[in-house]
Design a protein around this nucleic acid. Structure first.
Lengths: 122, 122
DNA sequence: TTAACGTACAACCAAATGGTTGTAGAAACT
DNA sequence: AGTTTCTACAACCATTTGGTTGTACGTTAA
């Protein structure tokens, strides 16, 4: 499965920043397990309703959660696409590192010492 | 391959916060591809040396890069372990979401309509 | 209709962030 | 020795962040 990675720097900024807070990560876990209203979420944390509301807003701006109106409630649910996009980013980082290790391994396997060889004139 | 996930909230905070900046993500890419001195990195960005130095310090505190002394230079290199740990975190999130989808699918597959059944008194 | 609930939003505050300049020290070059 | 290079770090500043309280409004319940 190929995941789209067309994310601007600012979008990636918002996603990582949103995940850089334990309360927000906990909210993401809860609403991935099952959707919950903002006040149901707020009951679980030792802070004001408005503070939790702000955290949800940060997650929403980052695209990590969506809100849906039901009566007077706002149901918050997780957005798995955003999570996959971040995973794709980190996969890319790991591939870059792996390519570097492979290059170093190739160098170590060479019989030649670190003399710059001016290649193509063997 | 099983990746250790014994990270405190504060450590995860630092990792995500470190990645929530385009300059720092670019630095991570560069030093994963190959180690570079701080001043070599600073030449590539339109900001002061001290600013780049701060960015490297943020990455180092998050464990995403390490620094090694070579003469008067500090060689910065990426730490792939940290990247794998974040991937493991996101994998966990995605598994949570998948479990939720499976549950919803199971509900939809049930023949019963959404009548709250007062279970055990059929 | 009135009261209670769930939410939105503004105003405010302390602390952290991301940048700057300046000073200073250790290592390398002439 | 003197100078340049690379780094470290302090001080400062504007903006953002993460929390608070208070007010207002739509929705549900009595």
């Amino acid at each position: 499965m190929v995941v789209e990675t067309n994310l601007s720097d600012a979008e990636v900024d918002r996603i990582f920043r949103a995940l850089a807070d334990a309360t927000r990560r906990d909210i993401v876990e809860r609403v991935l397990t099952g959707e919950q209203s903002v006040s149901a979420l707020a009951d679980r944390y030792d802070m004001s309703f408005a503070a939790v509301q702000k955290h949800v807003a940060v997650l929403e701006r980052a695209g990590l959660v969506t809100k849906q109106n039901r009566g007077r409630e706002r149901l918050v649910r997780g957005n798995p696409d955003a999570i996959r996009r971040v995973q794709a980013l980190l996969d890319r980082y790991e591939r870059l590192w792996r390519a570097r290790i492979d290059r170093l391994d190739a160098l170590l396997a060479e019989p030649e010492p670190p003399s710059p060889p001016a290649p193509g004139q063997e």
